[in-house]
Each structure stands twice: as structure tokens, then as C-alpha cells.
């Protein structure tokens, strides 16, 4: 997808140049870059959001706390931090489906969704999902009943969203841990719904 202009240095060379220029001036504290990368690859993950959803499916009191103050409810499970300062959970119902986008950049609730995937950051998704969500969802493999309303949530300010999807039928005897394996990053964004064919979570 990235086409390099021949006169530009490659992004790889440019990133190395910037890192070198800052390091040579002593502006990067030891271990800072490594710890940022570790946060992004190890700590922030859709597995966290999946645990939040599974807890809400199993524990009505937690569900109610999640819907009234998702920031606190995520924090209860240890998920907080950058881009998680004000989280709102969006409750799917049989009548209404929720889906998240950031049309102007790519804001996401990092602590519970992880850094967003490339498709979420693509011009295609950002341009289209606010205008033709049903078509975009269908293209991504989610065919909703035409009677189900769609709410698209544009992350234009500081609220960070996560979708609380419907618990799949046929899981009444499942453990919370097993339920969490059904919840993918895509179902936390709203471009997929958890079903017995989605687990275990492939996007971690």
C-alpha cells in the first residue's frame, strides 16, 4: 500500500534518523522506547476488552457498573491508562447494533482494545462507515437484519468507546474465561459479533 517517492528516504531510514538525532542529544531516557513498545505489544490488548465483556455477560451488577461508568469498571479489572481516561461502553440490543470509528485520525481505547489495526486506520473505513455502515459491515462479513438499527460512534473528542455485544445463544453454561475467547477486537469495535464460530480470539 505504501509507495515510496524515490527522492524521499524510506520511513525506516527516517525513523532511525530521528531516533539517532534525539539519542545523540541524550533526550531519550534509557529504556523509554523499549517500555513504550512493551506497553503497546503486551499490555494494551483486545484480550482486556474481551475480559470486560465476558464479566459483564456473567455478572449483572458488573454489567450495570460498566454501562454507567465504563472507565471505573475497566479499572476494576486493571485496565486503565493512556487513551483510557474516559471510556464509554455501548450496549448492543436485539434492536440496535453499535460500531466505532475515528474519521479524522484513529483514536481508540488503547487499554481495552489495543492499538487499532490497519483496516480501522484506513481511509476506506474512515470515509465509508459513517455514510454506508450496513454496506461496510456486510463487506466485512457481518450481515445484519435490515430491521436492526445501526449507530455509528465517531471518536471525535476525548471519549473512547467499546462495544458491549450480545451474548451468543447457546453459551449459558460457559465459564467467564471461555466466553472471553469469543470476543475479538472486531467485536469490540462492532464490525463483527461474537458467535460460536469466532473463538478462540485470533487477533491477539
Amino acid at each position: 500500500m505504501t509507495k515510496q517517492r524515490p527522492e524521499h528516504a524510506t520511513p525506516e531510514a527516517r525513523a532511525a534518523a530521528l531516533e539517532g538525532a534525539l539519542t545523540d542529544q541524550g533526550l531519550i531516557p534509557d529504556g523509554l522506547l523499549e517500555s513504550a513498545i512493551e506497553m503497546a505489544t503486551e499490555e494494551w490488548s483486545p484480550r482486556n476488552g474481551a475480559r470486560v465483556v465476558a464479566r459483564a455477560w456473567c455478572d449483572p451488577a458488573y454489567r450495570s457498573r460498566l454501562l454507567s461508568d465504563a472507565t471505573a469498571a475497566c479499572n476494576e479489572l486493571g485496565y486503565a491508562g493512556l487513551q483510557g481516561e474516559y471510556i464509554v461502553a455501548l450496549e448492543d440490543t436485539p434492536e440496535r447494533h453499535n460500531v466505532i470509528v475515528c474519521t479524522q485520525c484513529s483514536c481508540t481505547a488503547w487499554p481495552v482494545l489495543g492499538l487499532p489495526p490497519d483496516w480501522y486506520k484506513s481511509p476506506q473505513y474512515r470515509a465509508r462507515v459513517v455514510r454506508e455502515p450496513r454496506k461496510v459491515l456486510r463487506q466485512l462479513g457481518l450481515e445484519l437484519d435490515p430491521a436492526v438499527a445501526i449507530r455509528v460512534w465517531e471518536t471525535s473528542a476525548e471519549t473512547r468507546y467499546m462495544v458491549l455485544p450480545l451474548r451468543p445463544a447457546g453459551t449459558s453454561d460457559w465459564s467467564e474465561e471461555a466466553l472471553a475467547t469469543l470476543v475479538t477486537r472486531e467485536s469490540l469495535i462492532g464490525t463483527a459479533i461474537p458467535d460460536l464460530g469466532t473463538g478462540p480470539n485470533a487477533n491477539v
Binding site: 500500500m1 470509528v101 474519521t103 479524522q104 489495526p117 490497519d118 483496516w119 484506513s122 481511509p123 476506506q124 473505513y125 474512515r126 470515509a127 465509508r128 459513517v130 455514510r131 461496510v136 463487506q139 466485512l140 465517531e154
Partner: peptide, 12 residues
């Protein structure tokens, strides 16, 4: 970008 036309399928 919201609402702009002409973009193709979302590549997942």
C-alpha cells in the same frame, strides 16, 4: 475523511 466517496473495499 468522513463521508467522502470513491474509496474501495476495507482491506482486513
Amino acid at each position: 475523511l468522513g463521508g467522502m466517496a470513491g474509496f474501495g473495499p476495507v482491506d482486513q
